[in-house]
Amino acid sequence: MSFEPKLRAYTAPVFTVEVGSGERKMTLGGESVQPLCFFDKPDQPAPLIGVEVSDIGFETEGLPELAAFYAGADTLAARAVKAASLPGASFVCLHFEGADPAATNKSVEDCVAEAKEAVAACPLPVVIAGCKNIEKDTALFTALAEALTGENLLFLSAREEDYKAMGAAVALAYGHKLGAESAVDINLAKQLNVVLTQLGVASSSIVMNLGAAAAGYGFEYVASTLDRVRSAALEQQDGMLRMPVVTIVSAEAWSVKEALVSEDDMPEWGPREERGIQMEAVTAAACLASGSDAVILRHPVSVEKTAALIAALM
């Protein structure tokens, strides 16, 4: 007797969130199968890859390939165009790390001017990431949301501390999409979606940013959070957890010692760039296998590897 697999019927797919305008559009979410189980049901959407570019440019010591890729791209707009040219890239993430008061403390006005130029130039949908300083991000996102009304950008992210201001400005007043960020805390992830919804933000405007960790740095918590969120969405049809998940892999992967220590300090570890790419690509693959609908990556080679993985599994 031949084996007949009995498939779980998931009747409530992950919500879809549309980002971008005009020719530059993408849809996050929409799947009704477990992560990467495309063979379970036809016409499932592929996970997406975003490429991160920094407003102040990446530090590239020991990273010759990355430096070469962005050589001559001296503005955020030029870097965004470069990033968008990568095969496999679905969107570009403008990371305003220079806005951080603890770093260069770039003014909101300067950030807005750079963002407008980058959004105008970039041929792919744009995602905005802040500097992690609550006060600055609130001011920055509010100004960016207003200046770029109609562009339907995705802002990463609102947190427990600032969801009211972010929800009201970014989503309600200026009609953009908003990430809800919870640092690997499944109950908080649901709670943020509840309070944003109660504020009046539609579920079709909310994306979950559940946090990340590089492989080997507490990734098991990330995996179990992603896994439980997706199970609650598909199996329990929990309307407060059916939003798509975007994971910023780049910042985590490139901040651990395997990706930071120079070859001079650790000759036996080999070239820094190779280590960083491996860390980024491995973490991205693990996030996709656990339930991320999109991963944001930094290195062109990581993008290439991840795109090849997705293509091979589709």
């Binding site: 499944i186 109950n187 709670q191 979606n193 509840v194 309070v195 439980r228 609650a232 329990q236």
Partner: peptide, 12 residues
């Protein structure tokens, strides 16, 4: 375990 806890669970 039929529904995931969130602080606002009674409002849902």
């Amino acid at each position: 375990g039929e529904t995931l806890y969130a602080d606002s669970y009674l409002e849902l």
